[in-house]
Write a protein that binds this DNA or RNA. Structure first.
Lengths: 235, 235
DNA sequence: AACGAAAACTGATAAATATCATGTTTATTA
DNA sequence: TAATAAACATGATATTTATCAGTTTTCGTT
C-alpha cells in the first residue's frame, strides 16, 4: 500500500492545517496531536466511514475528495457534502456521542489523517481560539444548510442542476482543458440534486443542446455561467 | 402596550434560561447580562427581525412562537424553523458579522429578551461551558439540517406533510380538545413542506378522508400517527 | 483484444405537483 | 353587524418528474 513520505508529515509541519480549524492550535498542541494521529489511504470507491458507525475522532483530508451522503427512507442516497483537500470531517463526533448519520465515500484516491477524539477534545475546551474557530465553521455550515433546504424545497430539478453545475465549476479546480476537475457519475449528480438518474441525464443533454455546457463522456465543460444563473433563478 | 412584571424578570432569576445555552453562564455573568438586556413584546404577525437586517445580539424567547423563513429565488417563503418559548435565536450573529439570511415573524404574541452581542460574546470566549454548550447546540442543528435536506430532496409532498403533522403533534403542546396547539394557516403549512398552498390543502383533505387527521377550521387533530408514519416512509 | 458489467442514454408512459380559475367560508374591522 | 378582505376549498388543466423498458456506450478485467 502506498505510504509515501508526504503521508507521514508531522501536523506541526503540515500545510494542510492552514485551511481548517486546526490552524488555531498551538505548536505544543500540534506536536501532541501529531504523536497520536494515524494516516490512511482510501481508494476511490472505498468508504471513509459508514452511516451508523462510531467515528470517535476527526479526519483531516490531505488529498482527494469524498462524497458525504445519507440514505433516505425511500432508499435513495442523498449526497449532502463534497469534502476535499484541506477540509475536516467528523467534528460533530467530538461534541455529541452519537453514531454518524452520514456515510463518506472516496470519489478519488484519498490521503487522510485521523485524530482520535480523546486527544483533541481537550483542546476544544481549553483553547478558545480553536473552539471559536469551530463555532465559526459550524455557523457558516448552518447558514449554508439553510440555503440548501430552501433550494431543495422550492426550486425545480432543472434549477438545482444549474446550481450544482455553477457550484462544481466555481468551487473545484478545473482540468487543463477547462472541464470541471471532479469526475462524478450521472448517478452522483442526480444524488446531489435529489432526482432520478434519468432526469439528470435528460436535463444535462438539454443544457448541452442549449450550449450552456458541453459533455465529453464524464467530462463536463461549463460554457455559459450567466445562462445557468438565469435558469437557477427561474427563467 | 402590555409589559407585565414577568417581562422584567432578571436573567439570574429567569427560569427560561434552563432550557437553552444560557444555563451555562455563571451567576455573575447572568447579573451583568441582565443589566443590559431589553424586553420586547412582538404581536402576532409582526417581525422579530428581517432578512438582511443586522441582528447584533441574541433573542431569548420567553413566550410565544415564531416562524423563521427565507425567501427563495422563486419568490416563495420557505419556513425553516419554528422557534418557541425557551429557545434562543440569533446565535450566529455572535460569530459571523454578516446580516441575517433569515426572517422571523411571530405566529402568536411573543415576549422576548434581547441581549446585545458585545455583552455576551466575551462569555463565549471565556466560559468554556457556555461555548461547548453552544457547539453542542449547533452540532445538533447541523444534524437536523442534514435530515431536512434529505427529506426535502427525496420525499414527496405527501410524505413531507405526514412528517410535518407528526412533528407538530409531537413537539408542541396540544390544546385541551387534543388538537395541535399551534395555529398555522394552510399557507404556513405549505411553506414548511415546500409546496403550493392548494397542494397542501388537497392533501390535508385527503388525510382527513383517510381518517388520519381531522380538521375543524384551522384546528388539526392527529388521529393516526402510525398511519402517518407509514405514509412518511413511502407506503 | 474480447468479455462482461456498469454506466449512459432514449422513448413511452404514469404519477405527482403546479397553476389558474372560481366559489365558499371565515376573520377582521369600519 | 355589515362590509371587506383574507383564507380555504375544489375543479380543470398544464407541467414537471418518476418509472419502466430497452439500447448503446464506456470501462475495467482477464
Amino acid at each position: 500500500m502506498l505510504q509515501n513520505s508526504e503521508t507521514h508529515t508531522k501536523c506541526e509541519q503540515c500545510i494542510i492545517r492552514q485551511f481548517n480549524s486546526l490552524k488555531s492550535l498551538t505548536k505544543s498542541e500540534l506536536i501532541r496531536i501529531s504523536g497520536c494521529k494515524t494516516s490512511k489511504i482510501i481508494k476511490k470507491g472505498e468508504p471513509l466511514f459508514q452511516e451508523g458507525e462510531h467515528i470517535n475522532g476527526i479526519f483531516c483530508i490531505k488529498d482527494g475528495l469524498c462524497k458525504v451522503s445519507k440514505m433516505s427512507d425511500n432508499g435513495r442516497d442523498q449526497i449532502i457534502h463534497l469534502i476535499r483537500k484541506g477540509d475536516i470531517i467528523g467534528e460533530r463526533s467530538l461534541i455529541n456521542d452519537e453514531v454518524s448519520n452520514l456515510k463518506a465515500v472516496a470519489v478519488n484516491d484519498m490521503e487522510v489523517c485521523f485524530i482520535p477524539k480523546e486527544e483533541i477534545i481537550k483542546d476544544l475546551q481549553n483553547n478558545s481560539n480553536f473552539s471559536m474557530d469551530m463555532l465559526k465553521k459550524m455557523a457558516s455550515s448552518l447558514k449554508n444548510a439553510d440555503n440548501v433546504i430552501v433550494d431543495m424545497a422550492q426550486k425545480t430539478v432543472k434549477q438545482r442542476l444549474a446550481d450544482t453545475l455553477i457550484f462544481l465549476d466555481s468551487e473545484f479546480e478545473k482540468n487543463e482543458d477547462g472541464s470541471i476537475g471532479i469526475l462524478l457519475t450521472r448517478e452522483d449528480i442526480s444524488n446531489i440534486i435529489g432526482t432520478a438518474t434519468e432526469s439528470a441525464i435528460r436535463l444535462l443533454s438539454d443544457f448541452k443542446k442549449k450550449k450552456l455546457i458541453n459533455l465529453k463522456g464524464k467530462q463536463i465543460f461549463v460554457l455559459n455561467i450567466p445562462g445557468l444563473q438565469q435558469i437557477s433563478q427561474g427563467f
